[in-house]
Amino acid sequence: MLLINCPYCDDALPELEFAYAGEAHIARPADPSKLSDEEWRDFLFIRSNPRGLHAERWRHIHGCGRFFNALRDTVSDRFLTTYPAGQPRPDVTKLEAAE
């Protein structure tokens, strides 16, 4: 069971309190009608699914209820950081240097 730091509650809490919500930083297009079928498919279905660092969304569903983002290594399942929804993906090199 993962231990996840909710950036709003500022506390590391068990995974049971959280719901995974898929890859992060895939913003809904402002005007979907302008998109080609291929572009719309990319938004709907294409996912990076990396073996390694993954930016992903979680919701503290049995807590504050807020969505937030996380950087997690999908090989070790280790979280590098979590950050509020809407913030850009943090620079990993800076994160690792800070450790």
């Binding site: 969304r57 919701r59 807020r66 969505f67 809407g86």
Partner: peptide, 13 residues
């Protein structure tokens, strides 16, 4: 409710 919260919080804050 989860779907509504998702859109409200992340797409249309």
């Amino acid at each position: 409710l989860n779907m509504m919260e998702d859109y409200l919080q992340t797409e249309w804050p």
